[in-house]
Structure formats: structure tokens, C-alpha cells
Amino acid sequence: METQTQVYQRVTVMSVKGRVDSTSAGELETALKKLLDDGKSNLVLDLSGVEFLSSSGLRVLVTTLKAVRKTGGDLRLAQSSQRASDAIGLAGLDVLFKSYGDREAAVASF
């Protein structure tokens, strides 16, 4: 799994690529927690490069969503791959996240 972060004035975008399972979910959690510690609470996760997303990875997304909502921010999803989108829907978690077809729309939504 790889992550890449782009910081805008009001929003921070993290692109996630590769496989997010129990082996790599901790790494994603650490990367997201660092953004929260730096005071970034308006987050967009670009999931276009996600090839595999298990419930371990989904747990990290939900934990982060809770944390940012507590501080008045939000975690929104952008251009999720079919595989990521299927995993989120199968877990019944699609109702928790605002999702956008493209990254620009997700950034502009804040």
C-alpha cells in the first residue's frame, strides 16, 4: 500500500494505492492519525488506486471519520475504484460517507 498527501488551504487529500488489508491497515491508520495530529480535519480520500480493501481497512476509515467529525471536520471519499466501492457497499458503510465521482468535486464540497 502507498499513500500520497496533497495539502490545500482548507482541505487535505490523501491518495491511497494498492492493497489495504490487516497487514497494511495499521500503516494507513498511522498516516491518517498524523494528519489529524497536524490539525487537518477536512479530509478527502482518493481511493482510485485501491486494488483491495478489507474490513480492517474499512475500520480505519470509520475510526478516522469519527475523529474528524468530533472536531467539526469530515472525511469524504473521491473516485473510489470499483473494488473499493464494492467493499464499502458490502460492509453496509456507504451510508456513512459522502462520496464524489471526482477529486475536484470532493475538494470543492468543503
Binding site: S54, A91, G92, L93, L96
Partner: peptide, 14 residues
Amino acid sequence: ATLRDARIGGRGLL
């Protein structure tokens, strides 16, 4: 699923 669920557990089985 709601954000109030502390663990969001059982998702894998679902």
C-alpha cells in the same frame, strides 16, 4: 451502520 456504533464490528461476516 451508524457512527454511534463503537466498533462497527461484524462487517467482515456481513
